[in-house]
Amino acid sequence: MRRWLPYPLVALSLLVLWLLLTGSTSPGAFLLGGVLAVAGSGALAALTMPAAHLRRLATIPALLLDILVEIVRSNNAVARIILSPGGTSTRRSGFVRISLDMRSPHGLAALACILTATPGTVWVEYDSSDGTMLLHVLDLIDDEAWVRIVKDRWERRLMDIFE
């Protein structure tokens, strides 16, 4: 089992991807998708990627819902900033340096994707020697507030899942 399917989650998502792409659930599609999934995850094993050990899977749906709500909310906020006629002079944007406690590479990747996919914040760089990251914020009112948002809203929950 371990030898044939080193990454079960990756293999499953490859199979689902193939079934969606062909748009059928016939035995032939399953067979071909299964071969593709085994071959694909085997190729990934050759790259010796560190495997992620997910815990507390029950918290993931609530996290995804929160991400969706946050994306809708900040879409609205950024659209308002862009469309406001002369508001660009009073608004301040800038960089915030935040020191993170999370060290799991998968957790950091997830945090980076969440922050960048949310309009208004972009993850710029991460320094693995002292564990700080640089965030660019479009509407920077208070540095401390952003540190709190990143650490309380996302980092702690991702640490529960990935570490």
């Binding site: 879409n75 659209a79 996919a117 949310t118 309009p119 208004g120 972009v122 479009l138």
Partner: peptide
């Protein structure tokens, strides 16, 4: 660095 935020509206 301000402009890099703008396309995320379309992509999300």
């Amino acid at each position: 660095y301000d402009r890099i935020h703008a396309p995320t509206l379309g992509t999300t």
